[in-house]
Amino acid sequence: MTFETQFRGNAARTEALLTKLLSSETRADEITRPENLAEAMRHGVLNGGKRLRPFLVIETASLLNGDAEVALRVGAALECLHCYSLVHDDLPAMDNDDLRRGQPTVHRKFDEATAILAGDSLLTLAFDIIAAPETHLPDDRKAALVLALARAAGIGGMAGGQALDLAAEKTAPDEAGIITLQAMKTGALIRFACEAGAIIAGSDDVERHRLRNFGEKIGLAFQLADDLLDLTSDAATMGKATGKDAGRSKGTLVALRGAEWATARLRELVKEATDLLALYGDRADILIETAKFVAERKN
């Protein structure tokens, strides 16, 4: 099966599960799901995303013979958390964006208060999905997933990275600061996506660290490619505003080192990520193609 076929197939399965999880049907111990809030959540999630992070959960679990249905649910949980971050990042108090994936952002289609609540609900739902009895995994692995995701998403991960990103609008960080910011804001969830596959499979610490390291490499590549696209692409291709970093005087590695250096560094990161999976042979082909896709994508 080709990478493109696998990528589209996993995205479709993830989309179908997300549609079910975000329905207005109440679950055990819920009182009701307000329709306007549920609609805002669906708008923030079911709007054409690539589903890269769920794909990484599914494929790393597959590489290590982890349960496919569990991986699908954990991937959906991660996508809910990722989309919460996008809903909140787009708010006027944050990045103040009107467009996301070619559609109005949640606060533009609804209102700011609803967007905040939609993000809050998606964040909470992510942990609900992992902990739920439908996720057929031993409790110790569920606890490990919850802890790893909380650490990747919170003050020492994505949320902390967003705080550093806001601060960078006032004082441009040096190269080390940019790398730290990007490893937190963008890289931490991609790192978790790859580590989650090892947790689902019950892998030992060595294997878990190897997949985590792979995620760190492609997380760096993802942000570096994003910075290049912000500089060279347009809003129609990207589905969101471009040129924002330069307009806000934010420091990026591309601005600091140049596009030629960034392109060369992307090749290095793909090589480093690929080398980490060499011992798996042909079974790692899909993940190796994923690393190339992350570095070479056009939107």
Rank of each mutant, 00 (worst) to 15 (best):
K185H: 04
I155A: 14
I129Y: 02
A150F: 05
A262S: 13
E169F: 09
G119M: 05
T124N: 12
R151A: 11
A259T: 14
G177F: 05
A163D: 01
T186M: 07
L253M: 14
I116R: 04
A159D: 08
A118M: 02
R141H: 01
L228S: 03
L137Q: 00
A198L: 07
D120V: 05
K250Q: 14
Q223D: 09
L181S: 00
T252P: 07
K185N: 03
A152M: 05
I190G: 00
G258M: 10
E134R: 12
F222A: 05
L231T: 14
A163W: 05
R248I: 04
D226A: 11
E260G: 08
K244I: 14
A163F: 11
I199H: 00
R191L: 13
G160P: 02
T263M: 12
G219A: 10
G160S: 06
T171Q: 14
G187R: 03
K244F: 12
R248V: 01
H209L: 15
G251C: 09
D226V: 11
D234Q: 08
I116P: 02
L149Q: 02
C194H: 03
L189R: 03
I218V: 12
A126Y: 00
D227C: 11
A163Y: 02
L253K: 07
S121A: 15
D165Y: 00
A144L: 11
V206D: 15
A176G: 14
R248D: 09
G119Q: 06
T180G: 03
A193W: 03
D120G: 02
P138G: 07
L256P: 01
D128K: 13
D120E: 05
R248G: 13
D226S: 11
D205W: 07
G247F: 10
I179Q: 09
M238E: 06
K217E: 14
S203R: 07
L166F: 11
L181I: 10
A241C: 11
A198R: 01
L211D: 01
Q182E: 14
T263D: 12
V146P: 01
T242Q: 09
L164Y: 04
C194S: 11
M158V: 05
G157H: 00
I179S: 10
L189D: 02
D234S: 13
A118L: 04
A168T: 08
